[in-house]
Simulated assay, not measured.
Amino acid sequence: MKRYSAGNKIAANIVRSGRFGPVLGLSGYYMTAPGYFAGNVDYTGFFLHHCVHYMDLVSFLVSPVAKLTARKVEKQPGKVLFHIHFDFECGAIGTIAMGTIQSRGAPVERIELMGDHQRIEVENVVEIRWNRNPPFKVDDPGAILSDTTDSLTWKPNFTAAASEDPKGYHSLLADVIPALSGGATAAPNIHDGVVAMERLETLRRELDL
């Protein structure tokens, strides 16, 4: 699903356009609250319904993962924070923080791609900023906004809610449904799911959860 979230989709398209250059680093966080564990602390649901999304997304944005390691801190049963380190096959490195120690009433998701003099920041899936390599402007009397070097930003128009799909559900189904009928689409396939689940298993072993 996170491949289809608006900001992530735009970030991936920028990288694939060739205008960003090689991705050198990835960082971010994908948090939630401990509501998964009401009455029963079992991290299985948290891994399957939350963590699995980023186990897929990191490769969609960068490249296949060569190595995954992780560390955790557990304040009490059901309140856990862990940092996952990724070594990517392309040579990039990355760190994602995930856990159950934040309120769902505040933004809980952010991802950043680092390149050479370029950076893409996606905030809460609905706001994206592409920082490039702008010149200093304060002392330039002829300063303008350049469409080739200055930062670009985007966020959806929520006053036209029917026209915007920032979380990507509709876009995902638009690819999945024809794929189920044998059509060729960009929808993730069973192999992508297996890879994400294998990473979850590695993550659980690393964290001993």
Rank of each mutant, 00 (worst) to 15 (best):
K72N: 15
Y29E: 07
L209M: 13
V195C: 06
G99F: 00
I177M: 14
Y36I: 01
A186R: 14
G25Q: 07
I128Q: 03
E164D: 06
V23I: 07
E201I: 14
V108A: 07
M98A: 10
R132V: 08
I190E: 15
T44S: 13
L173F: 14
E201T: 09
I120Y: 04
M114C: 12
M55L: 13
W130A: 02
H50V: 02
V195H: 03
D175K: 05
F20R: 05
F88N: 09
D147Q: 08
E89C: 08
L209V: 13
P77L: 12
L113M: 08
L209S: 04
L203D: 02
L180F: 15
L61M: 05
E112K: 08
V125I: 13
V73Q: 15
Y4A: 00
P22V: 05
G28F: 04
V194M: 12
E206C: 14
E123H: 15
F37V: 01
R199C: 04
K75F: 14
G39D: 09
T32E: 03
L200A: 02
D150S: 04
H53T: 02
F37M: 10
D175P: 03
D116P: 11
V125T: 10
T100E: 04
G18W: 04
E112S: 11
L57D: 00
C90Q: 10
N8K: 04
T44A: 11
W130C: 04
T159F: 12
H191W: 07
L172P: 03
T148D: 12
G45H: 05
N189K: 15
F82S: 06
D150T: 02
